[in-house]
Amino acid sequence: MPASLEQAARRGESLTLWPRVREAAVALLRQTGRDPFAVVGVTIYAAFAVIALLADVIATHDPLEIQFLASGKLAANQRPGAAFLLGTTSLGRDIFSQLVYGTRSALFVGLSAATVVASLGTLVGLVAGYFGGRIDAALMRIADIALSLPFLPFVIVLSAFLGPSIYNVIVAVALLLWPNTGRVIRSQVLSLRERAYVEAARVTGASTWRILFVHIAPNILPLSFLYGSIAIGWAILTEASVSFLGFGSSDVVSWGYMLQDAFTSQALSRGQYNWFVPPGLCIVLVVVAGFFISRGYEEVFFPKLRD
């Protein structure tokens, strides 16, 4: 066996998943520092993460509790002020507190959907790309089909049938979004498969699963991260739409729920901008943060990704 192959094999053997994950994470962070867009994106994410974690502290009221004025009257449709920072809903609920708790469900939906999308997509991409042949053809056909389902209508029908729950939105998003990740990972695996150190590992008799998860998987982690970060935005947008249409869960406060509440309670005709503008802006911020982050990485890690 040529010396270089042997070396590569030895290097490959010493690789385990976690150091590589750390490496990928460090590379991502380093990249972030270089790209002003990514810095903005990460900052937005971080800010919302803090708000979500400290929601109990930051919120001034229980988001679903009906508030009363000192006079004992229902505190409905209050203007923004000291008592209610962003005013109240038509049922006397505190809008600011809803907004704060909405961060929590947004990040929950976003992160869990992103995790499922990225893992499912990565797994399928790995298997399809590495084994090729019929498995590949079958998986890619399934991906084609999943991509041929109209996204929002499918999510609507599914969440309506599965019942109103935040988990069902996650499931629906995951079912339809994994193929994008899967396809890209697959093509990456196809090229990695031919690399010297993978070849070397094969020659030294490493098991298939070992090659897949120890040698190949770590190299595609940045891609998985990338597609995960795109999925965060999609999931949050989708949850908002589903909730807005009334197929969301009514006991979880989300930004989509707030918008639906505002819409059906005539907030528009009453000009209660303080009610329906903030949740929309929050959605814009979180989603655009994902765009900013992925934009930078796409250019640096995979300049020709789009072809």
Partner: peptide, 26 residues
């Protein structure tokens, strides 16, 4: 470019709500 990205990130129904409140009702 960032503005376009931000606009793309806005939920359509929310943009609709704002436009409706301003141009329709307001």
């Amino acid at each position: 470019v960032p503005i376009v990205l931000a606009v793309r990130a806005a939920p359509e129904f929310w943009v609709g709500m704002v436009l409706l409140a301003v141009f329709g009702f307001g």
